[in-house]
Amino acid sequence: MELTGSILVLTGAFFLFSAGLGLLRMPDTFTRIQAGTKASTLGNILVLAGLGFYHPDWALKLLVVAYFVLMTNPLSSHALSRAAHAIRTPMAPSTMVDALREEGDRQGNGDVS
């Protein structure tokens, strides 16, 4: 039981580490946001699940926390990257397609939601 919890927490820590690594190594704002969000959401939830194995009586509260992380983390990253896109933050030179900008141009204004 505790071994399972420890392994889960360790896996979560690995994902959180890779999120930090992504923040350092990725070339531009959007890829950094993406690396930070995806890996840290999964890492957080894994750590919470591992804690749930350690303390089964906390399970409900941990579930609520995990739900909250799942709701807010991608959403805040979406808001951040949308704002960054709207003020035309430069992208990495290797970017091929900007689907959101093309969609906005097709509709005749600079911005769509």
Partner: peptide
């Protein structure tokens, strides 16, 4: 215009 996703998400998380 504010993002639709953010608006809907806020409506779900605010009661929480």
């Amino acid at each position: 215009r504010p993002s639709e996703l953010v608006g809907n998400g806020a409506e779900i998380t605010l009661p929480l």
